[in-house]
Design a protein around this nucleic acid. Structure first.
Lengths: 245, 245
DNA sequence: ATAATAGTGTCTATCAGACAGTATTAC
DNA sequence: GTAATACTGTCTGATAGACACTATTAT
């Protein structure tokens, strides 16, 4: 009876493979803003299973390199994009007997928000190809490996929901940006127009930005450039953006 | 090179144990309302590791019984409480090298809301004892196994957050209840008073309850009894409960 | 009648949307 | 000047909190 052993004795005779252990991996939905669209990074699988199919980047935990789960996500992100300080959020974990032909599998899913001009796409041994795909193109046209369409849908839903009451889109813009650019980012993700004055009031009340002192010039009145305040974590509003009435 | 194999050949030679696979389990925070307090179910561990310590109920996936992750959570819940149709929500997944002495481990965490008079607590082989603990008693008094204090904190935070803008507390009440009882449930979880009229307006606008036709009598004016509407999923409000100004 | 709790009427405060107005640049 | 975009003033509308009021029961 195990209860008679010390914990040390127990651990000595313990073998993880005596139990049902699922194949556990981490998958990422890496979002960026490109060509005025919200896009997600897909990789073409270079290995079985689902060889040749497009999939969310992901892979197994590296027991040596990863101390906690988020490390694995950050590592995958850096491998594919070179970006190492993204906004990163765990979304959900999917697990089941039928989602991977290798057997019972679990995937912990994260999404990341990055600035795409800071990215240099790089494939690696596990992918023939890497590309940005506008999320609007993912509906029925494109097949994704495993249950990744469902996984991605969960990430998009989470992102859209949070954009209604947080300042998350700041993470999709470069260091300096105008209020109009920020508003456009919100509009692209929410896929609806926001009233300018409401938007500016909201951002102003949140007190999350500071002027850089620089201006963005164009063929018209220049716009003030802002940056996120240094310790500016993501702000949570108590009311949602509602959109046109 | 794997790319030259068919998927079938690949799967034939595939062995899950050739990779780093963490010890993956499911843990539950089972909440109920008891003695006018929000309480959580803890079990005393009857096995190594952390033998004798209090912990959230949980365990490994059963590849035969569980088709998807939520099945494992539901199964754990039924084993401990006999309840089989709870409100169940996945909260977060914790994983790391140091959270379990057996090695790199991952736990997918769910919370459940149940009605405690429908429960018959039952230990099983893996637990000496099972008990309800008010969440207010969990601060520093009580040690929990592994990182379960942190895990539980995440569940409590999620619950509190969602109670601000959903109708979740309905799931903690029996079939029939009064509006005052429902309000008290919200107040207990949020740990603050809610203005009666605001609360009733909110519930009324949501249109999620129906009168049962019965009344609850006491030493004063009887109160109408309500039940959740049949297809009443949990309602999402667009504004949070704000509490006293 | 009184105590006690159920339930309502209605005021104010807050913040989102609407929309017209002013400001500042390039040309 | 005109065109274009940045930015603001201020009205309306929706919904939360405050709080006093009425309603209905047991005793």
């Amino acid at each position: 009876m195990t209860a008679k052993q010390t914990e040390k004795q127990f651990l000595k005779s313990y073998n993880i493979h005596d139990f049902d252990v699922p194949l556990t991996s981490v998958d990422m939905a890496i979002f960026t803003l490109k060509d005025e669209q919200l896009q997600v990074l897909l990789v073409k699988r270079a290995q079985h299973p689902a060889l040749g199919q497009w999939a969310l980047p992901g892979g197994f935990i590296d027991f040596k390199k990863d101390k906690v789960l988020a490390d694995a996500a950050r590592r995958k992100l850096a491998e594919k994009t070179g970006v190492d300080t993204p906004y990163l959020e765990q979304v959900a974990t999917f697990g089941g007997a039928d989602r991977d032909p290798r057997g019972w599998s679990v995937t912990i899913t994260y999404f990341a928000l990055i600035v795409c001009d800071e990215v240099e796409l790089s494939g690696d041994e596990s992918s023939d190809d890497v590309k940005w795909v506008p999320i609007k193109d993912i509906t029925n046209k494109l097949e994704l490996a495993f249950d990744h369409k469902q996984v991605l849908a969960a990430c998009i839903e989470r992102l859209k929901n949070k954009v209604q009451y947080t300042s998350l889109p700041v993470n999709l813009l470069p260091e300096e940006f105008t209020l109009t650019e920020l508003q456009q980012t919100f509009e692209i993700i929410l896929d609806k127009k926001i009233e300018k004055k409401s938007f500016r009031r909201r951002i102003d009340d949140a007190d999350i930005l500071e002027e850089t002192g620089n201006m963005k010039t164009g063929s018209n009145r220049p716009a003030k450039l802002y940056r996120a305040k240094p310790k500016g974590e993501n702000f949570y509003f108590t009311r949602n953006i509602e959109g046109p009435r």
